[in-house]
Nucleic acid binder design. Structure first.
Length: 759
RNA sequence: GCCGGGAUGGCGGAAUGGUAGACGCGCACGACUCAAAAUCGUGUCUCGCAAGGGGUGAGAGUUCGAGUCUCUCUCCCGGCACCA
């Protein structure tokens, strides 16, 4: 037997698999399909650290088993390559973002290739490829045609550092810019916005159909933030009526005043100087300053009074910035008696507090002429960015015809080369400076017109990419219907970090594509497995800044891809965040070596002593991979290996079976050993082993003996032994005899498991 | 405040209501070696020489039997949050 030389073995088989194409996407449509997808990466200049491939290894293990189980498998990989990092790199180094992106992609591909993943690179996609973003633009035009994309001039989040508008989803929890942590301003400017709110109810309800982790569904429910309530109109003396939204119409009789947001027309049009000063100050505050404050401030609107719809009582109206402009009607009815915030505000301004007599919601609506209404926290999706490196929004502005979509035959609208990638800061993208590109003709009337110069956000390309993987080279359709029917939906989607943003945008676009007949399922991702991150050995995030980054290339060089893969699956539960441990990796390396050395134990005849352990391993490894419990699958393989090392003997067929079980985890060494056994075709195309139910359990069992619920020892008997037999075994064991009552008042006997004697 | 998920050795973690701590790391001792590494073997929750006792965040409960089920509480992680 030769030494285990992981470098030679891994190189040899990676080359051979590439040559023979064993991982090509299956074409046999008579077999059941599995579409297994990773969240595709942004190819950063940093390259991969050992945390990144964890999800890729998991889908690799899963897809290998599924292929062996007879499924045709689609397991593709691609690049989500638009976005700010490449653009910032371009600004700094004066190179075209494409150059940096291409370089990064080739580095990523090299790193991935060392891991031995079974991607079918014939299906590779790149969101920055014009042949790809042609269809991203096509989807935008369909949204526009259906009235789901619109221009808005409302104030939006503006990041002064990135110099672009942002969606709410691009902000941190504290309201700062997700990318650079700058304090975000509200800035009124022209923006393209998508009506995701129209899909809010479907996005909420269809969560129930998904096999996703509960915490992800919950995050999406929180983000959508549906609340049921009512709108009630209050007549106002001296001004137009005020409509309020409330989730508690039943508290109507406790209302003692109204409050409107500074943005509310009633506040903005007030001529009172105290009010206008307050409003001006409030509007000048950032989102954080306004929502972060605890003490409530506000002023009375003089010369207006609301009329209580039931008592006709005259109620004061205040303007206060604890009422949000972006939610409900920007006006509330205050019930200081029951609502803590209203109560606090009433104390600050000295407003009246009345005891609330509750009535039924129905009655309240009747007497107040209120209407039931549903409100959402989610806002429409601000979809334009004033930056260079994104998909151009494919519309033309014509003086006569207004906004005109670029005809589909003229797509893609390609991104022109520019001299400077810097954002202009004026609310225009760098594209605005390229006159030859901006100036065009109106597709409707032919008159001179100007192209839209805003680009799409980073999330656009990833909002439909799983469809392109099904049909990557199609130039006449986003995806051919037969391919979409063949592969959709994604059976298993694996990734992390995008619980809300990507997953909600992707579901939104998918539902839209369902509505226009492009896809046949209402949801894109039937099952989602969310991964836990790998921290650095010091327990911190892996980062250049802490100098604690571990590069997979180095690990693979020292320990081999097989040990590396197996370790990442063995570290702990897939969804747990766990610190990397090079010591831990040594353990799986030892396991691979013992597997390798076990070829010395191979004998031609069957070794019955291994039957139980081997059958149990077939069952457990298969079940556990299916359930994403890779850590216990690996530990079961180790248990079998321990058994083999004890017996120092394994039948040739048994070893072959064992190799197939390890193959998804350690594809190179198992392929090598498989060929050593004399096979000439790949182990990865072998049928997955089946277990023999009859051999799953051994003929002897260990029965725990308890006295009054306290375990006193065990007896070993043949399977199926009756109570009498167990009792006689107990009383012939001197150690147990001492504890066991001769005449128990009660005996609990569970066959093959336990006996409990109660004195 | 609301919602979701947790708490088990020195560490990562196992346990259909049925022998808690599988598997791995680490550690200790032993074998091999001139020696070391590698490898192999033995041990490793805790108190105790032993017999035996205690032990899965705390407290109660259900049960012949609870890490697992129920209730109360503490703490940790994540999401949302002046959302009316």
């Amino acid at each position: 037997m030769s030494e285990y030389d992981h470098t030679a073995i891994e190189k040899k088989w990676q080359d051979e698999w590439a040559r023979s194409g064993i991982y090509k996407t299956g074409t046999d449509s008579s077999k059941p399909k599995q579409y297994i997808l990773d969240m595709f990466p942004y190819p950063s200049g940093e390259g991969l650290h050992v945390g990144h491939p964890k999800g890729y290894i998991a889908t690799d293990v899963y897809s290998r088993m599924k292929r062996m189980q007879g499924y045709t498998v689609l397991h593709p990989m691609g690049w989500d390559a638009f976005g700010l990092p490449a653009e910032n790199f371009a600004i700094k180094n004066k190179v075209h973002p494409r150059v940096a992106v291409d370089k990064n992609i080739s580095n990523f591909k090299h790193q991935l290739s060392l891991i031995g993943l079974d991607y079918d690179w014939a299906h590779e996609i790149n969101t920055t490829d014009p042949a790809y973003y042609k269809w991203t633009q096509w989807i935008f035009i369909q949204l526009l045609k259906k009235g789901l994309a619109y221009e808005s001039f409302e104030p939006i989040n503006w990041c002064p550092s990135c110099q672009t508008g942002l969606a709410n989803e691009d902000l941190n929890a504290d309201g700062t810019c997700e990318r650079c942590d700058s304090v975000v301003e509200k800035r009124p400017m022209r923006q393209w916005v998508l009506r995701i709110k129209e899909y809010a109810d479907r996005l909420l309800h269809d969560l129930d159909t998904l096999d996703w982790p509960e915490h992800i569904k919950e995050q999406q429910r929180n983000w959508i933030g549906r609340s049921e309530g009512a709108e009630i109109t209050f007549a106002v003396e001296g001004a137009d009526p005020v409509v309020v939204f409330t989730t508690r119409p039943d508290t109507l009789m406790g209302v003692t005043f109204l409050v409107v947001a500074p943005e509310h027309a009633l506040a903005r049009t007030s001529t009172d100087s105290t009010v206008s000063t307050y409003v001006r100050r409030a509007l000048g505050k950032s989102e954080i300053e306004r929502t972060g404050q605890k003490a409530k401030t506000g002023v009375l609107l003089p010369s207006v009074r609301a009329l209580h719809p039931v008592t006709q009582e005259k109620l004061p109206i205040y303007v206060a910035d604890y009422v949000l402009a972006t939610y409900g009607t920007a006006a509330i009815m205050a019930v200081p008696d029951l609502d803590e915030r209203d109560g606090e505000f009433a104390r600050t301004v000295g407003a009246r507090v009345a005891e609330t007599k509750l009535m039924s919601a129905d009655e309240a609506l009747k007497v107040s002429d209120g209407v039931r209404k549903v409100q959402y926290r989610i806002q429409d999706w601000v979809f334009s960015r004033q930056r260079y490196w994104g998909e151009p929004i494919p519309v033309v502005h014509c003086e006569k015809d207004g906004v005109v979509p670029v005809p589909e035959a003229e797509l893609p609208v390609t991104l022109p080369d520019v001299e400077h990638y810097e954002p202009t800061g004026t609310g225009e993208s760098p594209l605005a400076n390229i006159e030859t590109w901006v100036n065009t003709k109106c597709p409707v009337c032919g008159a001179p017109a100007k192209r839209e110069t805003n680009t799409m956000p980073q999330w656009a390309g990833s909002s439909w990419y799983w469809l392109r993987f099904m049909d990557p080279a199609n130039n006449s359709a986003l995806v051919a219907p037969e391919n979409e029917k063949r592969w959709g939906p994604v059976d298993l989607y694996v990734g992390g970090d995008h619980a809300v943003r990507h997953l909600i945008y992707a579901r939104f676009w998918h539902k839209f594509l369902f509505d226009i007949g492009v896809v046949h399922t209402i949801e894109p991702f039937a099952r989602l497995e969310f991964l836990g991150f790998i921290l650095a050995e010091d327990g911190r995030k892996m980062s250049k800044r802490w100098a604690n980054v571990i590069n997979p290339n180095d690990v693979i060089d020292t320990f081999g891809a097989d040990a590396f893969r197996t370790y990442e699956m063995f570290m702990g539960p897939f969804e747990n965040t766990i610190a990397w441990s090079t010591n831990g990796l040594v353990g799986t390396r030892r396991f691979i070596e013992r597997l390798y050395r076990a070829q010395e134990y191979v004998v031609s005849e069957h070794v019955p002593q291994l039957d139980v352990a081997l059958n149990a391993t077939i069952k457990k490894v298969g079940d556990d991979i299916a359930d994403f419990k890779f850590n216990t699958a690996v530990s079961q393989m180790m248990i079998l290996q321990n058994e083999i090392d004890t017996i120092k003997k394994i039948g040739k067929d048994q070893y072959a079976t064992y190799l197939k079980l390890v193959a998804p985890f350690a594809p190179h060494v198992t392929e090598e050993l498989w060929h050593e056994l004399g096979h000439t075709s790949s182990i990865h195309l072998e049928p997955w082993p089946e277990y023999d139910e009859a051999k799953l359990v051994s003929n002897t069992v260990t029965i725990a003996v308890q006295v009054a619920g306290k375990t006193r020892g065990t007896v070993a008997l043949s399977r199926g032994a009756g109570e009498e037999e167990v009792l006689s075994a107990i009383f012939s064991d001197p150690k147990l005899m001492v504890h066991a009552p001769e005449k128990p008042t009660k005996v609990v006997f569970v066959k093959d498991r336990i006996i409990n004697l109660i004195p």
